[in-house]
Structures are given as structure tokens and as C-alpha cells.
Amino acid sequence: MSMTKKRLIPRLLQFALVIAGVYFGFVLLFDVILGALIPKSLLSMYMFFVIAGTFMVFTCTEESAREMVDPIKALVEDPSKKIVRNIVYAVLPLLAGAYIFTSLQLSFEAPVELRSIHPAPPASLKAYGKRFDLATLENPYRKLEKSDPEKFKKLVFEGGEVYIKNCQYCHGDRLDGKGPYADGLNPTPLNFQDVGTIAQLQESYVFWRIATGGPGLPKEAAPWISAMPVWEDFLSEDEIWKVILYLYDYTGMRPRSWKHE
């Protein structure tokens, strides 16, 4: 118990250094090396648990905990540290004040809008003058993939034509959401190459989103700022099914399905 050895770096400073190191590590990794910045909201949650975890390691033994607490205790109680104490007592409220002041500053940034990217679909959908039951709706051409690969290939090709004529302006010729018009849109068009988009969905869901577009989004997905047109007005039912085949074929993704292949 009494083997408190003199450390090169005091425990409390170690604690602070670890946390700062992790923080800047995240920033360096994402913002600089990977070039895709880490969202502030996520970083603050990450840091909360990094601090919690570090705290756990640093306080799980008695002596370590004491080493952490002692400097703080000394700062508050030790008469010889009067000057430091006064400085800390003056600086801390100022820092807190400055933080609150800056966080209350009005900025010109629009408020954060949260959109649910995959809103829950309705049970059924009205399009083309009929009603589709989304629970049982299937791509009528999907079965050809096995039974008639030649025909399937042709359908995929036709779907590709539909895509290039209608969709690529926004979703991009590589289906990565970086079409010529993509820069003008917010939210930006979906990137079908991402594992989080069509690969997570059943074809019936994709059909619903294409057929009814942005205006067909349920209320929970509001605000309806999606620029996706109501394709029901421009494409035939058949064309939508074919373009869906193309989306999955080109990206190499499989639609979400509970069937074994």
C-alpha cells in the first residue's frame, strides 16, 4: 500500500494528457488523415465515455485514486498554495463564463435538422391507381435472376437506361450520390454504394421511396426537403422495378431479404 513511488508525470496530469491525447487523436484521425470530419455531437459523446473509462482506470486502486485527488485537495487546503488557489478560483469562473457566453452567441447557421433517413414505411402504398401491400410486395423480376439469367441481364440493362436517363443527374453515374446536380441539393442525394442505404432495405421499401419520392415521405421524416421527385408520375411501374434491379446489380449489394439464396 505504501509503495507510492515518485512518478515522472503526476497522476492527475497523466489523466488530463490521456484525455487530451484521445481528443486530438480523433480530430487528427478523422479531420486530417481520413479527410472526413468527426461530427461534433458524436465527438462529445465519445469524449464523455473516454473520460469515464479513463477515470475508472485511474481510480480503481486506492493509491492511484489518492494520487488523483491529493493535488486537488492540496490546492484547496494547503496554505502554501494560496496564490495558485486564488488564480484557479479566478480563472475557473471566467472560463465557465466564457463558455456559456460563446455557446449563447447567436450564429447565422441554420438550426440542425434531423431527418430520419429510413422512416418506417406505411403498411400499404397507393400508386398507379392501385394499392400495394408493402409487407408482401416483391420485385416481379427478381426471380428471373435464377430462372432466366439472360432475360434478367436484359432487364438490368433496361434498368440502367432508365437510370441514366432519369436518376444519374443527382445520384451520379457511379451511383455514389455525386451526380452533376448533387452539389445543389441539401440533403444530398443518397449514395447507393454505401452499406447503410439500399443494402439495408427490402426492394418493396425502395419501390415505395422511388414511386412517391420526397412528397411521399411520412410526417416523421419531415421536413420534406428532399428533392426526390414523385417518380410515379414519370416512370411506369415496370421501369421502377427494372431500375431497382439495376441499383442492386451495379453496386453489388443484395436487397434485404429473409430468403436463403
Binding site: 478523422f30 470530419l37 440533403p187 444530398t188
Partner: peptide
């Protein structure tokens, strides 16, 4: 790490969309 990240408009623009190339995974 949530599927849908909370992004400010600046972050949204910088990332080029609501999906994060690395964190999205």
C-alpha cells in the same frame, strides 16, 4: 455510434451527405 448522425449544416456540406464514409460503417 448512431446510424443517423446528428450533423450541423456545415458538417453536412463538408461530408457531402448524411452518411459518414467511415463512421457510417
Amino acid at each position: 455510434t448512431p446510424h443517423t448522425l446528428v450533423l450541423t449544416n456545415g458538417e453536412l456540406k463538408s461530408l457531402g451527405g448524411p452518411y459518414h464514409e467511415y463512421l457510417g460503417k
